[in-house]
Design a protein around this nucleic acid. Structure first.
Length: 339
DNA sequence: CAGCGTTA
DNA sequence: TAACGCTGG
């Protein structure tokens, strides 16, 4: 998933506290996908309400958003619109992998191999329209703004940061850097832990920040050359050149200057190259952005999460109290200078 | 993943 | 109080 240019990037450890006072965009699809894979019960299945509807994403969005707010970080969620048409191949591949996983899962259940079944089950994620719509509904009730991207959510999130409307982007994917996000926050969690997919075990993953300008300078490349490197390695919109990873791509781009020269040298071809480059440089985005944070609607949240989806009322109320307190704090902060 | 009760 | 382990839905 996404472009793997990790090996040529400098990353700095960061914390939620270090980012206090900042506004950030969140790649909604990316974070929902993470919640669906990691928030699971003992059986390895995502959390569900009594009607069998998946609720892991609601749990994730509710608690994560609240801790961000508690740390004075204001998140703005960016949702995917119509995928870039060249993504179709990638999406087809993902569908095939998923179908294969489901087949293997059924086989494992048949053979009573529950450990294998749990591991496979945790890899199968469905982001349905319901999951997206309920996420948006919850954000509305929480008074958190979200942006409907005309196309890719990570392009929208990156644009919003590049335009200076927010400070940085929360996403696990490096594609945001190709889209020009000045700062990308990864592993941006409260406790710095993540469950290893399919097992009950945890690994430590500390929040990190990647600074675009610093990395361009450190590698001695331009933004366009970073895009070229990404395309050589492979993105959501093309397969990349076999045998070329980020380090090799960097060397080649520095030696030959542009992806066109590299391809000529290697006698290779990438379909729709100009279109892909243009999409990273100038993706369709919503530019009319007004971000309005409102006080959480306690009754609607309790009705939605507890009434409709079986969340525990006492737990939800605890968090609502924290959010409420925090909202008052920020709205009064302009009065601080008079005290 | 995050909350929360338990433990040392 | 910090680390641990279980549970949430």
């Amino acid at each position: 998933m996404g472009v793997d240019i990790s090996s040529i990037l400098i990353k700095h450890a960061t914390t939620l506290k270090e980012n206090a006072g900042k506004m950030v965009t969140v790649d909604a699809y990316n974070i929902i996908y993470q919640f669906l894979s990691s928030i699971r019960g003992e059986d390895g299945e995502p959390l569900k309400d009594s009607a069998g509807n998946i609720t892991s994403h609601l749990s994730g969005i509710f608690y994560r958003t609240s801790s961000l707010l508690e740390n004075k970080i204001k998140p703005v969620y960016c949702f995917d619109g119509k995928p870039f048409y060249l993504k179709n191949e990638t999406l087809k591949e993902r569908r095939l992998i998923r179908e294969k996983n489901i087949e293997e899962l059924n086989a494992a259940i048949k053979n009573n191999d529950m450990e294998r079944a749990r591991s496979l089950s945790s890899r199968i994620n469905y982001i349905t329209d319901d999951i997206i719509n309920e996420s948006k509904k919850l954000l509305d009730f929480m008074g958190i703004p979200w942006i409907q991207a005309p196309s890719e959510g990570e392009a929208q999130a990156s644009y919003t940061a590049r335009a200076g409307i927010v400070d940085s982007v929360i996403s696990q994917d490096y594609d945001c850097l190709l889209f020009g996000a000045p700062r990308v926050l990864r592993n941006f969690t409260v406790y710095g832990k993540r469950r290893i997919s399919g097992t009950g075990k945890y690994i430590n993953v500390s929040p990190e920040i990647i600074n675009l300008e610093e990395n361009l300078e450190n590698n001695g490349i331009t933004q366009e050359q970073l895009i070229d490197i990404g395309i050589l390695v492979g993105t959501d919109f093309n397969s990349g050149i076999p045998g070329i990873g980020a380090k090799t791509a960097l060397k080649l781009i520095k030696k030959f200057g542009t992806i066109e020269n590299v391809l000529k040298e290697k006698n290779k071809n990438i379909d729709h190259l100009d279109e892909i480059k243009d999409f990273f440089k100038n993706p369709p985005v919503e530019k009319n952005i007004n971000l309005n944070f409102k006080r959480p609607d306690r009754n609607r949240i309790i009705d939605f999460l507890c009434g409709q989806h079986n969340f525990s009322e006492s737990r939800i109320i605890n968090v609502l109290d924290i959010m409420d307190r925090n909202f008052t704090d920020t709205s009064q902060s302009s009065l601080d200078k008079f005290t």
